[in-house]
Design a protein around this nucleic acid. Sequence first.
DNA 1: CCTAAACTGCACACCAGTGTGCACTTTTCA
DNA 2: TGAAAAGTGCACACTGGTGTGCAGTTTAGG
Lengths: 210, 210
Amino acid sequence: MTPNPDPPARSRRRDAEANRIALLDAAGAVLNRDPDASLDTIATEAGLSRRALYGHFATREELIHALLTRGVARVLQAVERVEHPDPPTLLALIGVTLWREVEAVRVMAQFTVRGPFQHELAFALTPLRDRVRHAVTVGRATGRIRDDIDADVLARLVEGAVLSVLDEATRSRIDVPTGERLVALSVLALLGLGAADARALIDATPELHS
Amino acid sequence: MTPNPDPPARSRRRDAEANRIALLDAAGAVLNRDPDASLDTIATEAGLSRRALYGHFATREELIHALLTRGVARVLQAVERVEHPDPPTLLALIGVTLWREVEAVRVMAQFTVRGPFQHELAFALTPLRDRVRHAVTVGRATGRIRDDIDADVLARLVEGAVLSVLDEATRSRIDVPTGERLVALSVLALLGLGAADARALIDATPELHS
DNA sequence: CCTAAACTGCACACCAGTGTGCACTTTTCA
DNA sequence: TGAAAAGTGCACACTGGTGTGCAGTTTAGG
């Protein structure tokens, strides 16, 4: 028996790992346009043959699962550093952060509604959703956020609003500053701030414009 | 040659036509959940065999086309009677009207982004979209609607907001009055009205609550 | 009531996508 | 530089869905 079973004889990870990532990136890009795209399309987009893809992922599901896992990690990690005492501002900041992860967010949005990972994905995203819900609740209590819509519902509407902007961004190429501004305005609008208030809040919050 | 070529010998439309409608209804319901559902699923839902479906629609595409056509007709017809001098109110009213056609609207929303009818469908919907764009533009000029977002973009965001609420309504069964209120609030929010203003406007507009 | 219309059920051809096996070439890294 | 790892290309089996043909049954309506 070999002394150390884990690291097999040799292991040329360098380019293999690079290709694995290329595949995930390609999957992200392609599935964003068409969530039913074939593995062939994805492999080609990554500059590989379909056959090679199977060297990295045993099945289509495995590929998608890996893609979603990576997406969740990225998004959660990006969001978790966001902090702000004022709930509306916090929510706007979260929105803007998500905007910076457009692709990952959109793919994930697609697969929360279709495919075999709906529930697993939804579960993985609970920390983020809890955070949003919590901010909404606190904001309501403080009077900073409208109280004429149920907190849970409002939280989901905010989520929807962000996704709307991301969709818009995908079809008509929007530049970064306008995109961020759009997300922030949409979120604040749904939370109950009038146009003037929202604009004031954004102008007063440097973290909100890159 | 037969004297009258059009009405062939006999024609038992009564139940045949009823089944055709049942198929369209089933298609609407099923495709709303899963836009890739099989014809077998649809036929079964309609209480017919898959084979019978082909007696009404030659291909899957033809069925979907018929479904979309019916949807467009319904929606356009429903919206076209809506009138109001105040742009925000008008837009809220349009939103509420769409809410009453949830199923049709959602199916159409699905197929504006996928399938072979994207463009035809988008084209068929231009009157509605033009109407929204126009209201937004007028409202901006009057100062009734925020002017810090490009009119076209804002129009699409409003569209997105309505769809968000319809999604929400689909997953968590919302009753009619709350649903209408939600749509109205979302639309008004995006247009730039603060929570208080929006509430006031809705309370002052009886057509906005059924 | 009896005939054509509508539906059922089954068989079949066809297609696109998935997943696998295998022989062969290219690449990397020890 | 040489051996293993990674990738290519092709063939193949399998699947689920589509669309059609046909023989037989049910049903509406003149």
